[in-house]
Amino acid sequence: MRTIQNLLEPLQAKLHSGCTDAAIPEYAFGSDLMSDVLTLEEEAPMLITGLANTQSIRTAEMADIEVVLIARGKEVTEAMIDLAKENDIILISSPFSLYKICGILFQNGLKPLY
């Protein structure tokens, strides 16, 4: 089974919360608009976003999303990390752009929702 650990190196990503032994979600969805994330009906994807504030974590909580990836090297705040830990959300960040991250995840087999 491929795990979050397998994604950290290609994304040059840092883990802020959660366990890298968790399975990689089957799907991914990239958006800075949380209203868009809240309209998703399919299986909960990995969320890739440039929105680095607590609302991205709250949105993940409400939408049953288990992995949040913050793009573009945005600062991940203590409040975001605390909220992610409280809700068992894996929180990682990457210095790459949302576009590049999506490309890497697509190459690694994560599927789009639409």
Binding site: L33, M34, S35, D36, T39, N53, Q55
Partner: peptide, 16 residues
């Protein structure tokens, strides 16, 4: 908008 909301999708999504 900086919170990731304000795109006019809230009430339609609540109804859905």
């Amino acid at each position: 908008r900086q919170m990731g909301f304000g795109a006019g999708m809230g009430l339609p999504n609540i109804k859905k």
